[in-house]
């Protein structure tokens, strides 16, 4: 398998399912290739490439998924998405002039919270990232970070005061990151927040945030805007990261202990041969 095949043969989000009405179509770009996503009057969604070839379609987690290649695996599972009582929130695509891999990596980072999401996801002087556990789970071929704890002034829309928040991170596919965090109104359960990223090119992407929450009181638009506020605080930082591509050469950037998840993610990408949006050798 060549490196480009790993990227080509994966699933990517191409549309929000319930915003595509019958008889409507839209054009998006996936890895420099134009795809037309159309929903027939019978409600069935088809994805067609520029040369007319039909592309695979999967519908899950509020999104339409497709590929410019032939995925040899089903779309990853998010078991929590099927639990009763959760609210599903589509936060919409946001375009970022950055490598899709950098966007995923940023989503896995905690240390920036007090500085970028000040008084929401973090606040000075509570800047310490306590040691946590990171592993590449070979049986499922995923990166996991567990036992992550951080002080947060407003952990979620539903949070009324500052609290220590527990986190888990999961990377089930190179362009997808899922986080699990303490659910303020329901201690003992996890809120699920995912970032599904569609590479447009190696240094441009659309990022779709999606949440499955226990929250019976917040207005849907408030939930969407809370998440958009967080993500857009990251966007201007992401667009200024240099180099634009994610360096997989360990000599390129100096990590600290708080970056353990990022180190595992980069190592995992390299091992998989996922180099779309990455820079292999420092230059």
């Amino acid at each position: 398998m060549t490196t480009s095949d790993v990227a080509r043969n994966d699933w990517y989000p191409v549309a929000i399912d319930n915003l595509l009405t019958n008889g409507q179509s839209e054009v998006v770009v996936l890895m420099q290739e134009e795809l037309t996503i159309s929903r027939g009057n019978d409600g069935v969604i088809k994805v067609t490439a520029q040369d007319g070839r039909p592309c695979p379609v999967a519908i899950n987690y509020g999104h339409v998924w497709s590929s410019i290649g032939q995925p040899d695996h089903a779309l990853f599972d998010i078991p929590e998405a099927h639990e009763d009582g959760r609210r599903m929130v589509d936060c919409g695509p946001v375009r970022v002039k950055a490598s899709p891999l950098r966007v995923v990596e940023n989503f896995l980072d905690i240390a920036h919270f007090p500085f970028v999401h000040t008084d929401i996801l973090g606040a000075e002087p509570h800047t310490e990232v306590e040691p946590y556990k990171v592993e590449i789970r070979d049986t499922v071929d995923e990166v996991w970070a567990t036992r992550v704890r951080f002080f947060q002034p407003q952990a979620a829309k539903s949070a009324e005061e500052g609290q220590m928040t527990d986190y888990m991170y999961r990377v089930p596919a190179p362009c997808t990151s899922i986080l699990y965090k303490t659910c303020p109104p329901r201690p003992g359960s996890w809120d699920v927040i995912a970032l599904f990223v569609r590479p447009i090119s190696e240094d441009l992407c659309d990022a779709y945030a999606w949440m499955a929450l226990y929250d019976e009181t917040s207005k849907q638009s408030d939930l969407v805007q809370f998440q958009q506020m967080i993500f857009l605080q990251d966007r201007s930082i992401l667009e200024n990261q240099i180099p634009r591509l994610l360096p997989l050469d360990p000599k390129m950037e100096v990590p600290t202990r708080a970056d353990t998840t990022s180190i595992a993610y980069r190592r995992w990408l390299k091992r998989k041969g996922m180099t779309y949006g990455a820079q292999l050798v420092a230059r």
Binding site: I16, L19, D90, C91, G92, P93, K219, Q220, S221, D222, V224, Q225, Q228
Partner: peptide, 10 residues
């Protein structure tokens, strides 16, 4: 009063 400008087009 939040209005879902994107993606909802409210």
């Amino acid at each position: 009063v939040s209005i879902d400008f994107h993606p909802g087009g409210e």
